[in-house]
Amino acid sequence: MTSQRYERVEKIGEGTYGTVFKAKDRETGDIVALKIVRLDEDDEGVPSAALREICISEGIETSEHCQVTVRLLDVLHRSLRLTMVFEYCDQDLKKYFDSLASVISQKTVQSFYYQLLRGLAYCHRHNIFHRDLKPQNILISKKGELKLADFGLARAFGIPVRIYSAEVVTLWYRPPEVLMGAQVYTTSIDIWSAGCIFAEMANSGRPLFPGSDVDEQLKRIFKLVGTPTDRTWPNIVRLPEYKEFPPYPPAPFSAVVPPLSPTGIDLLRRHLVSYPKGRITAEDAMRHEYFSDLDDPIARPSN
């Protein structure tokens, strides 16, 4: 049936689970994205990541506001294949960075980041946290709209942080508490990732903390924000995988993200706080002075 209604155009990529194709809906003529999960006969049925992603997308769609996340249009459940039909977006933020011929305009950064925060604020208000924010999961439509995608890791408690290989699970956007094995965490996990992406956008796609293993990841983080102590992060030593690091002093952010304006630096600093409770919320970040001169009609349609 899938092949009858949706005509595959090309393979776009391999998701966390399942393969993603660009396809044409023969009934409407629309271009869509198909995420296809193979179900083996000796398997466990619908994979939990797919199940969570569908449930969360269905939940988000019952509310009127659905521009901030990629819309799930249909689910086809055949005996050996589960197909999720999503609206199609031309590219993701990672590809956008790769395609940049010169440096990104800071106006674009402002518009993109505002949209990212709006999407996050929306999810957080609905008690959903994404948990796996990274440029590959942020899609950009032709009109320059930015949408959150890939809710496969969203919501449930505790990421199984077993790292199979650096390619499979990227550590770059993980906050320190997750790297140190925290089991309980909140929406602040997404704020850390968002901050890393904000800096990466401002630097035209150069990742902020490109660590290769957990230790090096934490070292890179602490060299910028300073090594946390029991005073700046109460009970840090009780984290399951707590490890001592040299007491790095905080470094100036402006040296790391030179293109960002002083108000942008201030906003970034409020994201990248090691102590999870010290981080800004998405709602507050949207009201930050950095956005006071935002005039992109896509980012702020009412203005």
Binding site: G45, L51, G59, H77, R155
Partner: peptide
């Protein structure tokens, strides 16, 4: 049978199963 029932339930409930 278990897997078939999983599928039937998800289909009948239209994957709308999350709630507080």
């Amino acid at each position: 049978e278990v897997l078939k029932m999983e599928k039937t339930i998800l289909h009948e409930l239209d994957f709308r199963i999350l709630k507080p």
